[in-house]
Simulated assay, not measured.
Amino acid sequence: MTAEDSSTSSQQRSRDLTGFSPKAKAWRSFFETSAIISDRMEKRLQATTGLKLSDYNLLLILAEAPGKQLRMGELAERMVFSPSRLSYQVKSLAGRGLLERCMDPHDKRGMTACLTEEGSTVFAAASKVHAQHIRQLFHPALDDAQAVQLRQICEAIYHTVTTADEPC
């Protein structure tokens, strides 16, 4: 190893504050890859449909829900949003005619978010664009066996996160 190689290696170590274990490197890779794919997907989706990724996700959850509606609390939980942030997003999408806030038919004290016909139309068009982006940015990186592995890994991480104690 030359002095230059040693210096370069030393500089890389001093700049990587995440750690050098396989798990630390995997975390860093996961974190950075998630951020860049979210950024690219967000920019592409917004440029072609006018929707943010969080808008698309909210419409997706409602489109999949029975009757295309969910109680606001359940929607907030599935979106991993605070109730105030969800209220703001629902108000914004309602202003665009994509959904409505309705009284819960089973509990008059609660509110539901209901996908409108316009929301269903916008979502259908956006899902085609979104699927194309996934095929361009995600699919080429994995074969089917790797995709199964990645899903299993993500499900294990999800389980760990959802069963961990909440911080004080």
Rank of each mutant, 00 (worst) to 15 (best):
L150V: 09
L150C: 14
K23T: 13
Q46G: 00
K43R: 15
T8I: 13
K68G: 00
E166F: 13
L51V: 03
L58V: 05
F81P: 00
P140M: 04
K25L: 12
S82V: 02
R40S: 08
R71G: 14
F20S: 13
T48N: 08
H106T: 14
A76W: 04
Q46E: 03
S120N: 10
I157Q: 10
L75D: 07
R96W: 00
S92V: 08
Q149C: 12
Q152P: 01
S29C: 10
A141P: 04
L70F: 06
L86C: 08
S84G: 04
D104H: 11
K128M: 08
Q89M: 11
S10G: 08
A145I: 14
S38W: 01
Q146K: 14
P66F: 03
S21G: 09
R85D: 12
A164H: 10
L45R: 06
L142C: 10
R85M: 14
F138A: 15
H106Y: 12
E4G: 02
I61Q: 12
A131H: 07
Q11C: 07
H133Y: 10
R71D: 15
Q136W: 01
Q12T: 11
T162I: 12
S9T: 09
L51E: 00
A147H: 04
K52Y: 04
T160L: 13
A24D: 12
D39Q: 07
S84A: 09
P66S: 12
I134K: 13
L17F: 15
L51C: 05
T8C: 03
S7R: 15
G50I: 02
A124S: 14
V90E: 06
L53N: 10
S87H: 10
S120D: 06
D107N: 15
T18H: 11
A125C: 04
I61F: 05
R13P: 01
L59C: 09
G50V: 02
M111T: 15
A65D: 02
T112G: 04
A65R: 08
L17W: 15
L137F: 05
G50F: 00
L58I: 07
G67I: 03
A3K: 07
A145V: 14
S87E: 05
S29E: 07
A131W: 02
V129Y: 02
G119L: 05
S7E: 06
L62H: 10
A76D: 00
V129F: 02
E166C: 10
Q11Y: 04
S54F: 00
L93T: 06
Y56E: 00
M79P: 03
V90Q: 03
Q132K: 14
D16K: 12
A164L: 13
Y56N: 02
S29D: 08
T116E: 05
R101P: 00
A3N: 04
A145K: 06
K68C: 05
L115T: 08
R78P: 00
L45Y: 06
G119Y: 03
P140Y: 06
Q146R: 15
K68P: 00
Q11H: 12
A145H: 11
D143K: 11
L142W: 11
R13W: 06
H159G: 02
L70N: 04
T121F: 09
